[in-house]
């Protein structure tokens, strides 16, 4: 929008907002890589890689703190209103969701380390699929954020049901294996935890999508739309 002053009076603030958004995407990319790496390490039983995932989570936590400081500074200095304010509030929420996604990746890394040299109780098929879907949801939610794309955000909400369905499947399968052979309960539980972490990652991506809907429309998603988990 043009100004009667010719020059855009909020050019600097706009640049700060764009920069914050870029930082948010960088954090999103770190979180996504952590998830992919954690599941890969689990599947290939690469304990060194698992240890790395656990170590790298500190960087995600630091990045989130930086982002939060930046957003708080902008709120204090620029006194934003309307869509600017909603963007900054969304940035605070989204950075928290991304940090939590990083924590789940770290959790999967720790599970892998606990498994040590024991082989997985079953071949890992659905768990990598869950990871793939959850990270795709994460990417889509961040895309929706950048492009203010409400339709895409709604698609993420719908996709969560698929991850929930996969989780159900993994859960039933593992339960059956553990009932049949109580000796594998410990190893089965590791994979249950992993599936649960991935299911939560998808939920966090859903939360980001809900923030996008709030950012663009100024309205919260109907809380009546509750997913199974």
């Amino acid at each position: 929008m043009t100004s009667v002053y010719g020059k855009h009076p909020r050019a600097e603030f706009d640049r700060d907002l764009r920069q914050l958004q870029d930082e948010l995407l960088a954090l999103g990319s770190m979180a996504e890589k952590a998830v992919v790496k954690a599941v890969d390490a689990l599947r290939t039983r690469d304990l060194e890689m698992s240890r790395q995932v656990v170590r790298d989570d500190d960087a995600i936590d630091r990045k989130r703190a930086e982002l939060e400081d930046r957003a708080v500074d902008l709120i204090a200095i620029q006194q934003p209103v309307a869509s600017d304010l909603r963007m900054l509030i969304a940035a605070l929420h989204v950075s928290m969701e991304l940090e939590r996604i990083g924590d789940y990746a770290e959790g999967i890394g720790k599970i892998s380390l606990m498994m040590g040299d024991q082989p997985p109780v079953k071949p890992l098929v659905d768990i990598p699929r869950m990871a793939e879907k959850a990270t795709a949801m994460l990417r889509a939610s961040l895309d929706a954020l950048v492009n203010h794309d409400v339709e895409r955000a709604h698609q993420v909400l719908a996709d969560d049901d698929e991850v929930d369905a996969l989780y159900d499947q993994v859960y039933r399968e593992l339960l059956l294996i553990m009932v049949q052979d109580p000796k594998v309960i410990e190893r089965g539980t590791y994979l249950l935890w992993t599936a649960h972490d991935l299911e939560r990652i998808a939920d966090r991506a859903t939360n980001i999508a809900e923030q996008v809907i709030y950012l663009v429309t100024g309205k919260h998603v109907d809380p009546g739309r509750v997913s199974k988990y």
Binding site: T2, V4, H8, P9, R10, V81
Partner: peptide, 10 residues
């Protein structure tokens, strides 16, 4: 209104 209150218009 949005343009005005966010300082991008007027």
């Amino acid at each position: 209104t949005e343009g005005y209150i966010t300082g991008r218009f007027g």
